[in-house]
Design a protein around this nucleic acid. Structure first.
Lengths: 188, 188
DNA sequence: TAGTCATTTCGGAAATTTCTGAAATGACGG
DNA sequence: CCGTCATTTCAGAAATTTCCGAAATGACTA
């Protein structure tokens, strides 16, 4: 691996993390490398820097593309593909959330919906369905929240995060206000 | 696999999902089975229902225990261990979040912190550090939010989820109110 | 059309993970 | 102590995933 120690540590850590998620070590390493590189890199550069085969790079980049995590760039008079990551970390977060939802949450919701509708044969099945319904309900709440929140621009999202739990106190405060005869703002 | 079709579908789906996360198929299946079962199950029952080896069950249950995802139960006059999952899905969500944070987020934050402090040797390293700092900042915001929100009881958490993006509108409304000379509530 | 360059595909090798059966451990009651 | 029962450990088998090199594909130029 032909990298400065600083970048190498970062890349290796992401390799580890990659395997702890679904994505594999190489994919994680390539992503990390692209993320910290100032300029877009071509496949051959990645081969040299990470010391892995050309084909592995090709397949891993393809994988990253299916996740929408890398951008393809071209330079005039050069027919190689160059790769980068989006520079806005909030945008990256959105993409990651969206893709993970698509791969992990949506299929589960779909299975749960289907199974809850099956006619239960006995008490055990009825209980199982009740449990599935609880899980389904929880996930739906989370997804509803997510679908709502993802419409916010990054600034507002940051504001919302900064508020955190104070939101509920705020809500209760506002509740007290708006319940009063004197209306001070339009209800939301 | 010796299960009703309903439960079997659920169990198989979680097996699939399990491998898509870090946990493996068997661990996912066992968790799913425990989750939908009315009563706690002993290892031998799991062996029969899932058609896997006793040792595999033992190791997978141990794995689930390190995740705090299963509860150990005992019946009087029986020295076998029985296993269940917590019944409150919100509690399960908390545990899952906490464990994933511990395994995936905290180590990453720690690595980032360390690397950001290294003296950069050249422009490339300086740029890499800037990127790492951006990532670190984002993750810290998320963690701060999480640490705050996890203190909420389930009802309030549900309320907060239900509010979603409306929070920011609410905030702006409150902002307008509290900025006015006439103070209508104590600032939060 | 031939030659070059970049990328992709793919069979199978290599590495890793998962899983099993057998043996070890441990706890309890007689 | 010994026998029984439940669990755990562990070496290696089995399965899966990852990875490579060679060949194929495709696109552009001379």
């Amino acid at each position: 691996m032909n990298l400065s120690p600083l970048v190498q540590s970062f890349v290796l850590h992401f390799g580890e993390m990659g395997s702890r998620w679904g994505i594999n070590r190489t994919v994680g390493q390539i992503y990390a490398l692209l993320y910290v590189s100032e300029d877009a890199l071509c496949a051959e550069e990645i081969v040299e820097m990470l010391g892995i085969s050309r084909s592995n790079v090709s397949m891993s980049l393809r994988e990253l593309q299916t996740w929408n995590l890398v951008l393809l760039r071209h330079k005039p008079g050069d027919r190689r593909d160059f790769f980068t990551t989006p520079s806005d970390v909030w945008a990256i977060l959105r993409t990651l959330a969206e893709e993970r939802k698509k791969r992990e949450i949506d299929p589960t919701l779909s299975v749960l919906r289907d199974l809850i509708l099956v006619e239960a044969g006995d008490e055990a099945e009825r209980h199982a369905q009740a449990r599935m319904a609880e899980m389904h309900g929880l996930i739906e709440q989370l997804v509803t929240w997510y679908d709502d929140v993802k419409t916010l621009d990054s600034d507002r999202l940051a504001t919302l995060l900064a508020l955190g739990a104070k939101v509920t106190r705020l809500l209760e405060a506002k509740d007290r206000l708006t319940r009063w005869p004197r209306r001070t703002d339009e209800g939301a």
